[in-house]
Simulated scan of single mutants.
Amino acid sequence: MNSSELIQEGLSLMAFGMGFVFVFLMILVFAMTGMSRLVMRFVPAPVKEEASRQAPPPVRSEDDVMAAISMAVHRYRQRHRR
């Protein structure tokens, strides 16, 4: 075999391999699309619940936040004494 025959055989093998992968991926896309449509047909869409009209959480002042942080630091230091 000379080099031109080897190159031609390599190119044909490459084309066959790429064609096989392309066909496999196309079959995979169609199968996934079909399964998705099948599932969407038999499984009902989730019902969205109406947002309950709750009062917004109370606004905390900076003093409350500082008190909570200092209490947390104090408890942490008590538990992790050396």
Rank of each mutant, 00 (worst) to 15 (best):
M1Q: 04
M1S: 10
N2T: 03
S3C: 11
E5S: 10
E5F: 09
E5G: 08
E9V: 09
E9A: 15
G10N: 10
L11D: 07
L11M: 08
L13G: 11
L13Y: 00
M14D: 14
A15L: 13
A15Y: 10
F16P: 06
G17Y: 13
M18P: 06
F20E: 14
F20V: 08
V21T: 10
F24I: 12
L25P: 04
L25E: 04
M26F: 11
M26P: 01
I27Y: 14
I27R: 13
A31W: 15
A31N: 14
T33R: 15
G34K: 14
M35W: 10
S36T: 12
S36K: 10
R37Q: 12
L38P: 03
L38V: 03
V39G: 10
V39E: 05
M40E: 11
R41C: 04
F42W: 02
V43E: 03
V43I: 07
P46T: 08
P46E: 12
P46G: 07
V47D: 07
V47M: 03
K48Q: 13
K48A: 15
E49H: 09
E49Q: 13
E50F: 01
E50D: 07
A51N: 10
A51F: 08
A51Q: 14
S52G: 06
S52N: 09
R53Q: 13
A55Q: 02
A55D: 05
P58L: 10
V59M: 03
S61A: 02
S61Q: 02
E62G: 03
D63L: 02
V65E: 02
M66C: 02
M66T: 02
A67Y: 00
A68M: 01
M71D: 01
M71L: 10
A72V: 02
V73H: 04
H74I: 04
Y76H: 00
Q78I: 04
R79L: 14
R79F: 07
R81I: 08
